[in-house]
Each structure stands twice: as C-alpha cells, then as structure tokens.
Amino acid sequence: MERKFVIHFPKTLVDKPIMSDLVKRYSLDFNILKAYVTPEEEGTLVLALQGTEENVDTAVKDLKEMGARIQSISSDIRMVRELCTDCTACIPLCPVDALYRDKEDFSVHFDAEKCIACGLCIKACPTKALVFTI
C-alpha cells in the first residue's frame, strides 16, 4: 500500500537522519514529493510511503513520538464553493497546480487528486474558501 503524508519536523530534528532509519527498520519505500526548510528552520517533507499497512502505521507512530507533526493526505483540503470569489490569490502558491483557473470563464477550480495538503492556499484565501477537512 501507499500513503501520502506531510511531515513537519521541529528544529531539533531537522539535521537527524530520521527518515532513512525508519525506512530501513520497517522496509519501506519512499518517494519525496516536496521538501523544504522554513526560515524558522522547521523542516517540511511531503512524501509517499510504501510498505505493509502495519509497518507504515508503526513508522508514523515513531515519527510522532520523536516530535514530528504529521498530516495524512487523502484530499485533506476542500474547497467550499459558495465561499470562493474566484480571485486567484491561491493559484501561484500551489506547488502542484492543484488549483487552477478556467481560461474561459475565469472560475477557480480545485483538483483534490493533485493536492498535497501543504496548506498554503488556506492561508492565502481571503474568504476562507479552502479548509482542512480533518
């Protein structure tokens, strides 16, 4: 099975080889979809983990115990259509083009399949039309 996660590492964990340890211990495969370190030196990693369900769950549990914050991605972000004014403030912030504008009628659309739930669009939306569902 494969599951996608957004993992936020606090400053104290950023320079430790946590992921490779876990991957070895639980025989997981992983695919890094996005990684960055914020100016506050918090690390953010968006990755897909592949392995048995039990091993993925245990790895996630271990990460949480080490102090990482974890969001599971399964269309975590939802667009509340009635609240969207089709302004496009969110569009350039989306790292994976999950938000896009219709070229003809200028309406804004959200593709939940592409979304990696980084949450930038939630901060960018002036009318709170994008929300976390969990």
Binding site: T85, T88, A89, C90, I91, P92, F106, S107, A124, P126
Partner: peptide, 14 residues
C-alpha cells in the same frame, strides 16, 4: 517567468 495571482476577481467583475 513569474506565476501571477489576483486579489481581484475578474469573474465577479464581469
């Protein structure tokens, strides 16, 4: 080449 976003809604303006 820089991606652009608008705070103003063209759809609503229309």
């Amino acid at each position: 080449e820089v991606p652009t976003g608008s705070l103003s809604s063209y759809k609503k303006a229309r």
